[in-house]
Design a protein around this nucleic acid. Sequence first.
DNA 1: TAACATTCCGCGC
DNA 2: GCGCGGAATGTTA
Length: 165
Amino acid sequence: MKLIIETKEGDFTAHYSENGLSKLDFPTAGKTRAQIAAKETEVSPQVSHWHELTIRALQDALAGRQPRMLPPLDLSAGTDFQRRVWGALRRIAAGRTRSYAEVAAGLGQPKAARAVGSACGANPIPVLVPCHRVLAANHHLGGFSGDINWKRTLLAREDVEVVEG
DNA sequence: TAACATTCCGCGC
DNA sequence: GCGCGGAATGTTA
């Protein structure tokens, strides 16, 4: 089940499974019309309610605020390691950052910094699972799997200082 | 096995 | 200080 969320940044696409929000896509130019047409199938009250929560959470996150409430997240598509990383990311408050190495150390695997980067790239729910708050060593920007400008924008909204590089 | 959203160390400037 | 090259590193398809 896939539904659109219209924001000032463009139209996000939210995917729902039986268990909750399973995927969130950044706006992609040109796809809007087709996706809006696709949302017209019947929506259960359950999904409808989750979608309300997703919309509010996304709008808070885009404004740099910590969402009060999230919909249930269905992260079952990930591996064990990825789910551990994503869980650690959700404990980083808005406006705070960690390095890939710090996240790795928090999992008890201080040498897995690069693996943490890979797991961040596999994150199906960006913004709400704050993959953008993970920077390279000493506040260098580091990478991003999509448009690196999303990482810059989201961090700027949270008043985070970043070193380019 | 190869590909990474890393990090560290040793250079030369 | 900054940039670059190379090696070690864990996870994944």
